[in-house]
Amino acid sequence: MGERFISIEGIARRFPLAGGKVSTVFENLWFSMARGQFVCVIGHSGCGKTTVLNILAGLDAPSEGTVIVDNQSIEGPSLDRAVIFQSHALLPWRTVMGNVAYAVSSRWRSWGRARVREQAQKFIELVGLAGAEQKRPAELSGGMKQRVGIARALSIEPKIMLMDEPFSALDALTRGTLQDEVRRICLATGQTVFMITHDVDEAIYLADRVVLMTNGPDAKIAEIVVNPLPKERRRDDVHKHPAYYAVRNHLIDFLVARSRTFADEIRAGRSYDPRKPPELIPSTPGPVAVLSPVRAAPSIEAVEKRSGRVP
């Protein structure tokens, strides 16, 4: 797999329950990713995706195991790892400029006012918010708020971007635009991204690799799907790629059924090494995939409802 820029090594997270019992969200989780990779994590609510992201961010600590980033085990949060929060987490008493400048001045404490503003301005323009610098978050739409969150994360020029369902609160149109921009910016800057999503299409469009997590408690990384789509992809023709529906069906199958039954598969004798979750490329579109009518793209929520699993 090449360079291990981020290496999650045998982490576990347990919470004490009332009555002295312990709830294990996940244990013995192993995963690594290379510099410049875009990884999406997919799984049902409660499988511990956000916990993994928080541990990567340093906001949470694993009960066991370590996470190594750039050859150093992480001890708490770091400016090298920027987080884009699902709820955008902007400071409402600061303007757009104030929010981004706050991050910039935290990163480079010796910088003067003018230099901080210049750097902040650069990233505000990058996400297309030029002209809105003096607005406060309350005056912005949901999409614009998330843009500020992205500008704030990018402005500190992190080694890694961690995104926790960054677009899930946005309408479909805004989501599409922002996906395009995140993809463009990350490709241009060679950013390493770890992103949690609920949206299969989002994962296929953005990710180099998709990590599939089974349902918690005791969640596992069932598989790592290597995205067969070329690095150069466009939103409007990504679905024309021969492997597109193979990937898509694989991911949806996993979410609908296998995320739940994977534990049974292991119990039934399936070989599974938590240190090396299987990597696969669902590339060959079988006749079924070709002949079956194209389904409308359901989100995971829709799939969950259809299969009677409302989270």
């Binding site: 949060p77 987080v83 929060f85 987490a89 008493w93 935290s106």
Partner: peptide
């Protein structure tokens, strides 16, 4: 809000600066 404190934590803001720039205005 926890998320505002988390912003400060991911930006490695010192305790004093956090008190004045996050907690006080909030």
């Amino acid at each position: 809000r926890r998320e505002w404190l988390n912003v400060a934590r991911t930006l490695e803001v010192s305790a004093i600066r956090r008190a004045f720039t996050i907690i006080l205005p909030a």
